[in-house]
Design a protein around this nucleic acid. Sequence first.
DNA 1: CGTCGAATTGATGTCATTCAACTACAGTGG
DNA 2: CCACTGTAGTTGAATGACATCAATTCGACG
Lengths: 191, 191
Amino acid sequence: MTPFFNFLLKAGLSQKEIDKLKSLTEEKHFKKGELILREDEVCPATYFIENGLLRSYSIDDSGKEHIIQFAPEQWLISNRSSIFFGEPSDFFIDAVEETTAIEIYPGFLENAVKINGKFAAFNDRLLHNHIRQLQKRLNLLLSATAEKRYLDFIHLYPNLLNRIPQWMIASYLGITPESLSRVRKELSQKS
Amino acid sequence: MTPFFNFLLKAGLSQKEIDKLKSLTEEKHFKKGELILREDEVCPATYFIENGLLRSYSIDDSGKEHIIQFAPEQWLISNRSSIFFGEPSDFFIDAVEETTAIEIYPGFLENAVKINGKFAAFNDRLLHNHIRQLQKRLNLLLSATAEKRYLDFIHLYPNLLNRIPQWMIASYLGITPESLSRVRKELSQKS
DNA sequence: CGTCGAATTGATGTCATTCAACTACAGTGG
DNA sequence: CCACTGTAGTTGAATGACATCAATTCGACG
């Protein structure tokens, strides 16, 4: 049983119902570093991570990357508003590690709801979860120092610490790799 | 015809359908400075602004306010994730100006969808809009200087510039009032 | 007219950035 | 097996952006 299958069961779908939706998904493999969504493209799908790690990030005027989200196993990643409004994306998605993901086409949601009304509530939950997450991140960026944000990061993604290079964490936190290195030094001296 | 009535028409509801929902809303009046949602409370409703101005904001460990959102006429404000998950709110909502707003109770959405299925799509649109907004704000905080954020603010809320004190704009931007004053000075010297 | 909060300005401090040098290490090709 | 190369991470010194503190001005309003 794949993680994605399990995910749909949690949504309240039955084995039969899931089978009907299969044509609207596709298992995809991405090599490390492979680009999945480019800026200015309309996001064509949502990805559920079976194995590996994707990330979304934007690039500013001066060419610097800013990581928006990491998506390890069991997470979803996409540009929701790009999909929904059909607008070009303002960020990229690529593979941090070699990754297997389920590509979910836009029609999936519509169909899933048609097949089983429960799915609407499930999707609603995902949307609200997403909002909660963004909200929390915003709050941290507005009010917390780099150190606090780092500690929060460790808490949110404990298993990613040893999986991704430090400069990516720095990029996620909104600071430079050098600064993160110093923050970590401070922390290790405290304890 | 009130703005809120008009808002529901845009959602695809008919006059009759709107009447049936009336019991799930209530017109409320807030005095300037009045607190509407306190931190640690579960958010009891969503507010549609008929007239006036509300804001949401958090307070950090050192007692400083950070404004999350402004809600002038025709905007909605609430803590969505608090409502949805029944969790205590991590921010406040209060009235920047004397305000008339429509209080929308949690059951409203459910009932509206029952009465007219179109409303689900409308609400979905609102949710995605919210996500888009948060996403954009996040990106700015991660990558833009205070000056750029200020220019973006002017663009997003052009009509608020002369309605709210400067220190609130500063708080929204994540800088001090003094810094904003200097940013504005810079800008006026450039042009 | 006096008071109080808002805004500006200057002097100084702090945190994070930038630039540069250096170490460590993994991968490549000879 | 070793030299060559490139990327990650650390460290130091200088710089920059914004914060803090303090003083002053400005304007609204009782």
